[in-house]
């Protein structure tokens, strides 16, 4: 464990807690893409298949349970909660996210580190996580209104993978044989997708104006 990875995990944790807090306290999911949340739930499901078979550490297990629990409860809130689901704007959340899954699955079958079910599922989760934010970013472009909590959620979510990139660089130089091209390439692509959002987020923060995305 290094400081970059801890910062990444804490930022990731903060992002899901900000989202849960928003939905739970103001009982609204306005501006949140259900499709992105469903993709994240699938990411955790396919990545943590070895949750009970491959014990790494208490920290690792607890964090996995938190990410699984929070992502599924967020999906439940938006789909099932009698008050929250009324604020879900499904006409704006139109990205065909299941179309995103097939290329990830096919890619995972052909490009992976070992052709076993667990490894292919894990690789699938890496590819899917890289593009899972797309429905949310498309929805933001459409609705254009970004309330503070949603803005913070997306910022933290983008920052976590940026910290992981620093973690991979650190581990590459401090541990021999630490080479994981698949995770690195997917992680860089994932962070780049947040690129323009970061730009407008910092602009609004610097000029102290409400965050606006260009049409």
């Amino acid at each position: 464990m290094n400081i970059f990875r801890l910062a990444g995990d804490m930022t990731h944790l903060a992002s899901v807690l900000v989202l849960l807090l928003k939905i739970h306290t103001i009982k609204s999911c306005a501006g949140i893409s259900l499709k992105t949340q469903e993709l994240f739930a699938i990411v955790f499901l396919t990545r943590y298949l070895d949750l009970f078979t491959n014990f790494i550490s208490i920290y690792n297990t607890i964090m996995k349970l938190i990410f699984l629990g929070s992502s599924f409860s967020i999906v439940w809130y938006i789909r099932r909660h009698r008050v929250v689901r009324r604020s879900y704007d499904k006409d704006q959340d139109t990205f065909r996210h299941f179309f995103l899954m097939w290329p990830c699955l096919i890619l995972a079958i052909f490009i992976n580190e070992k052709f076993t079910l667990k490894e292919v599922m894990w690789t699938f989760s890496i590819y899917l996580e890289a593009i899972a934010i797309l429905p949310q970013l498309v929805m933001l472009q459409r609705t254009r209104n970004i309330d503070n909590l949603t803005g913070q959620y997306i910022f933290l979510l983008g920052a976590y993978r940026a910290f992981y990139i620093l973690n991979w660089i650190y581990r590459y130089f401090t541990e021999e044989h630490y080479v994981h091209w698949i995770t690195w390439v997917a992680g860089v692509i994932q962070t780049l997708l947040y690129g323009d959002f970061f730009y407008y987020y910092f602009q609004s923060w610097k000029n102290n104006v409400k965050l606006e995305l260009p049409a």
Binding site: H12, I56, N60, M63, F67, E113, E119, W122, Y178, H180
Partner: peptide
């Protein structure tokens, strides 16, 4: 080896 290391990350 590939299986161990990459799986200790979340």
């Amino acid at each position: 080896q590939s299986d161990g290391i990459s799986k200790d990350e979340l």
